[in-house]
Amino acid sequence: MIFKVYYQEDANEVAVRENTKSMFVEGESQVEVRKKLKELKINIEYIQKVEGAYLEYEKINEDYKVLEI
């Protein structure tokens, strides 16, 4: 499954919408994705499962790439 992770680059940074970044990560669950990203020292705001039409829409975006961890 593919998950879209919304995050702040600094783990101590307060979540501000204008500074939120996103990445795509493959995993079996949100828990597994959190474990994979633990070493990155980022502030994870939200993890969303991406599938169906939403996934197809995201794949069209030139910034779409799944993080290999």
Rank of each mutant, 00 (worst) to 15 (best):
K35V: 13
Y7Q: 03
D63A: 11
T20I: 14
Q30I: 15
Y6T: 07
V14K: 09
N61S: 14
M1D: 00
E45P: 05
K35A: 15
E26N: 14
Y7G: 02
A11I: 13
E68A: 15
E18F: 06
E45G: 12
N19R: 08
L40T: 01
I42L: 10
K36Y: 14
Q48N: 07
N12L: 13
Y57K: 14
A53E: 03
L55N: 01
V16S: 02
F24Q: 09
E32F: 09
F3V: 13
I60E: 12
V31P: 00
S29V: 12
V5C: 04
Q8A: 00
E32C: 11
R17L: 06
K4A: 13
K38S: 09
E13W: 12
F3N: 03
D63N: 12
E68K: 15
K4N: 09
Y6P: 00
N61Y: 08
Q8Y: 00
G52E: 07
L40M: 12
K41L: 03
K59S: 00
E68Y: 15
Y7V: 02
K38E: 08
V33W: 01
A11Q: 05
E39P: 01
R34F: 01
E18Y: 04
E45N: 14
I44D: 01
I69A: 03
E26V: 13
E18D: 08
T20S: 08
I2V: 12
K49H: 09
K21E: 03
E32Q: 14
N43Q: 02
V16I: 13
V31F: 07
Y46T: 02
Q30D: 09
N19W: 03
I60Q: 13
L40Q: 06
K49Q: 12
V50D: 00
Y54I: 11
K21T: 05
K4E: 11
Y7N: 00
F24S: 04
K36L: 15
F24R: 12
E32K: 12
K21W: 06
V50C: 04
L67I: 06
E13C: 13
N43F: 04
K49T: 11
E62I: 12
M1P: 00
R17I: 07
R34D: 00
Y64M: 07
E9F: 02
V31K: 13
L67C: 03
K35H: 15
Q30C: 09
I42P: 00
E62K: 11
E18W: 02
E45Y: 08
V31M: 09
V50G: 00
M1I: 04
M1V: 03
K49V: 13
D63T: 10
V31W: 02
Y54W: 10
Y46V: 05
V25M: 07
K36T: 11
E28F: 14
I2A: 05
E13Q: 15
Q8C: 02
I60H: 07
K59Q: 11
Y46Q: 03
I2L: 10
E45T: 14
R34L: 03
Y46W: 00
F3M: 14
K38R: 14
Y54D: 08
K59V: 04
M1L: 05
N19T: 08
M23W: 02
Y57L: 14
D10W: 03
I69L: 12
L40E: 05
E62P: 03
S22W: 02
